[in-house]
Design a binder for these strands. Structure first.
Length: 105
DNA sequence: CGAGTGACCGCAA
DNA sequence: ATTGCGGCCACTC
């Protein structure tokens, strides 16, 4: 059974994202089957399911997103609410809490 | 309906 | 080492 749509898969992965952790666009895109479709994840994040914690999505450098509604400060505040420490707009324990999707779905 | 953009990433010169 | 460009899917105008 193969996924029918890229967006659907991304949303599923986001739904499986553990609380208190974060992930990157590239990892989701790579796992979805297209490592170069990282921007697609960003697009989905903007027009996708608003119930998913998109604020836990960060770029490859562990930095906050670029066009997040309200600015990086808003996303940073959300991450802090989740217990994620953010400094200078960059996640401190980024590699420590960096969650990776389970390919055994 | 058609074309363009988008919260990115990786590689080439 | 740095800069510039291409590429994927979905959504909007």
């Amino acid at each position: 059974m193969i996924d029918k749509s890229f967006k659907l898969k991304i949303e599923k992965l986001m739904a499986q994202l553990p609380d208190g952790k974060l992930t990157t666009y590239g990892d989701l895109a790579t796992f979805a089957g297209s490592p170069y479709a990282a921007r697609v994840v960003g697009g989905i994040a903007h027009f996708g399911n608003p119930d998913l914690p998109w604020h836990r999505l960060v770029n490859r450098f562990g930095g906050l997103a670029a066009g997040f509604p309200g600015g990086r400060e808003s996303q940073e505040a959300m991450l802090k609410q989740d217990g994620i420490e953010v400094v200078e707009g960059i996640v401190s324990n980024f590699e420590g809490i960096r969650w990776r999707p389970n390919r055994n779905l």
